[in-house]
Design a protein around this nucleic acid. Structure first.
Length: 290
DNA sequence: GCCGGAATTG
DNA sequence: CAATTCCGGC
């Protein structure tokens, strides 16, 4: 992929700036009231706050640790680090090996788990991670919702494919290509990490590691077995969301996503099951919602 | 192992 | 700014 993604804000979404401002105000409010629940819920996107940080921003164009972790987890590198049993949880199987990999990436040959874990601990206050107490080498990402519904600057299909943006993973955006019945990864959304995934993944996901994280965005291609998808996804609120919004069903090639009219306003008003979403957030990571 | 303060770094 | 380095304490 030739062109490198620019940070969201500088890209073509001035809305995000407003959302950030709004969330900053909300955060202040929440801090005063002692409520630390800080999920942005404006517009069409429900993302954890930290997910808005672009992977490559002009100032700090360096890979961050959590990018790196998601990269390893995303491509199922296995061995050094794997997803845990819970949503967002991951287990460092080989701490020193992970440290070495991280050190290689950052050009720090003396990296070890002691130092790496300090970096992880700094993520606690930033609310990117928290510790799963009692489980050795086990941490948990603080994301609960990675839902993308027709966001204005949703990337278009990769060239010369007839795919539609379909599901969002923590670090990747999937495009479903009906001609090969595969979800192909295309990393072009700045909310996600700019790492490339060389191999197309079979669809529906059957790998347990990947199966943990499917999220649906945009309309499912026609002929998609919705009940099967909802079975595969442990949290299918996004699917409900799209159903609530009553996506018109078209063939998947007829989805010029940036040209869906009338939908924008409906999305702005948000899903009606807001209370359910919040309850779900608490279920997913009660530890951070004290 | 895990925590977090403190100083330092690019 | 996001670690890195070091470390005393539990």
């Amino acid at each position: 992929m030739g062109n490198i993604q620019k940070p969201f804000r500088n890209h073509n979404s001035p809305e995000l700036g407003r959302e950030r401002d709004l969330s900053a105000v909300m955060e202040e409010k929440e801090q005063r009231s002692g409520d630390t629940h800080r999920f942005q819920s404006s517009g069409a996107v429900l993302f954890p706050d930290w997910a808005y940080k672009p992977a490559w921003s002009p100032g700090s164009r360096q890979v961050q640790l959590w990018h790196f972790l998601l990269e390893l987890l995303g491509r199922g590198e296995g061995g050094a680090i794997t997803w845990g049993s819970e949503w967002g949880e991951f287990v460092i199987r080989d701490p020193e090996r992970l440290a070495k990999l991280w050190g290689e990436r950052k050009g720090k040959p003396h990296m070890n788990y002691d130092k790496l874990s300090r970096a992880l601990r700094y993520y606690y206050n930033k609310r990117i991670l928290h510790k799963t107490k009692g489980k050795r080498f086990t941490y948990k990402f603080n994301f609960s919702k990675l839902i993308l519904v027709n966001y204005p600057s949703l990337p278009t299909c990769p060239q010369n494919t007839t795919s539609v943006p379909f599901s969002a993973f923590p670090s990747q955006l999937s495009f479903y290509n009906p001609s090969i019945d595969r979800a192909v990864q295309s990393i072009s959304h700045p909310l996600f990490l700019p790492y490339s995934f060389p191999k197309p993944l079979p669809f529906p996901q059957t790998h347990p590691i990947q199966r943990q994280f499917p999220r649906f965005s945009g309309p499912p291609p026609s002929g998609t077995n919705l009940s099967e998808l909802s079975r595969l996804s442990p949290v299918n609120s996004a699917l409900q969301f799209t159903q609530t919004l009553n996506w018109p069903v078209k063939s998947s090639t007829e989805w010029p996503l940036n040209r869906i009219m009338g939908l924008q306003e409906r999305i702005k008003s948000g899903p009606q099951d807001k209370t359910n979403d919040n309850q779900e957030d608490r279920k997913i990571f009660p530890e951070t919602m004290h």
